[in-house]
Design a protein around this nucleic acid. Sequence first.
DNA 1: CAACAGGAAGTCA
DNA 2: TGACTTCCTGTTG
Length: 482
Amino acid sequence: MLWETGFIEESDTMPQTVPRSGCSPPSASQGERAVPASPADLQHLLRLLGAASPPESMLHSPPNPHNKPPPPYPEDNTNNVFLERLYDFEGYPTPSPSSDEGSIPAVALQPASPYSSLQYSPQVYIKEEPNRLAVPGFASPYPLSPSGSCVSYGSHNQYSSPVPQHDEYIDIEELLKENQILQDSVQQQSYLTPKLEVEEPRDHILLRSALEDTSFQKRLNLRPIPLELGSVKMEESSGGDDSLVAPDIDRVLSMAIEQTKRDVDNTCTVLGISPDPMLWSTGDVKAWVMFTLQHYNLPMVPMENFTMDGAALVALTEEEFNQRASQAGSTLYAQLEIWRTSQGPDHHQLSASPIPTPAGLPSADDMSDDEDSESAGTSATVGGGKAKTGSTHIHLWQFLKELLASPHVHGSAIRWLDRSNGVFKIEDSVRVARLWGKRKNRPAMNYDKLSRSIRQYYKKGIMKKTERSQRLVYQFCHPYCL
DNA sequence: CAACAGGAAGTCA
DNA sequence: TGACTTCCTGTTG
């Protein structure tokens, strides 16, 4: 078991270490792309947010590097290198594109009009803290919940902020409450255009989870920007200018969409699957289902219920999802909808939205987070010299062991047949090759080339075919099998 | 037809 | 220079 996470780095017999983190953070040069939302996309997202009613386990904050949770599989913590890698990636701070490296990411709240209930100063800066925003001089009118807990999603439940309660801090829960009040008021007073109206929204749970994800702020490299949150509240309370409401909500939703899209992209990288579910193979579908179940701490479902390709999966109704995965069906269905929304054909329309980028936020032009850039980012040193993650300088045999070490994620692509003897089988050669190509930033990688590299290992004594040669079955030689 | 084997040349850090 | 990557021909099941 030692080698799964520690052997490779600890062994002095191996030619190269394997980084623990595989997903590269977005580099400064590639930046991140803000995803403005078109009205159609916003409408869709709002519908999703209102329709999707994930279980309690989805209401938990994603882990951050300051408070990393245990991997989703506590019974096999060492086997979740890739899941951990995803968390590492999510928590990776986006480097500042300019010289202000090391400065505190901040957001400025600049109300467009006088604000009666909340005491905003004309230019209020929010200093980023884990799970909390610090706003000097800000006093929320909404009491904290007795528990002081905050909603979060993922499998790791509560993350209490290390920051003590203080008037100068805005608890994220306060913001969420305010957000809910704003939304309720907006809906009651029909500030949203008919197109944006939601059919009986139960709760904007996913929006909550996106907004409270502090890594989301890091990724966006938030600097003082006029969010004009005050104006939203003002208009509903005073019956002011309706036109100011939708753009503000759009902006928030745009940021939520951005967060969702990045989560999707991260998952794509980790699983080595296409962002477009229509392109998924049967193995991709199973990998996605497994990952989603793990990520939201949902009960396992029989994988044979999802023996289908992506096109078939997309064609499933919510009822069919519920039949195949009783408790997890609705969540899987909602997640798939989000994937389709954020990565499907609408994505381009989404990116082309004319909603302006807030001042201080990186524009769409200097932000890029598509798969290619993530892969490219693996070869870049990011964050002013911070160690890179998911290096392209990894040996194939190490990479294969990484995959083998994550059976919950990659078990449908590659798995051990005889672990003690280092015998494994590639179940999905296309996917393994795709993962390898992604890691090495070689889009043209295929199994033919990958297997050629494996065969180079024969004379090096790293790998071999088993005595009774079987298709797609290989064996690590000693000590590489350890 | 896909997997397999291995030669040869090219790429890249 | 090592570790692939790319392309190739030919073989095997």
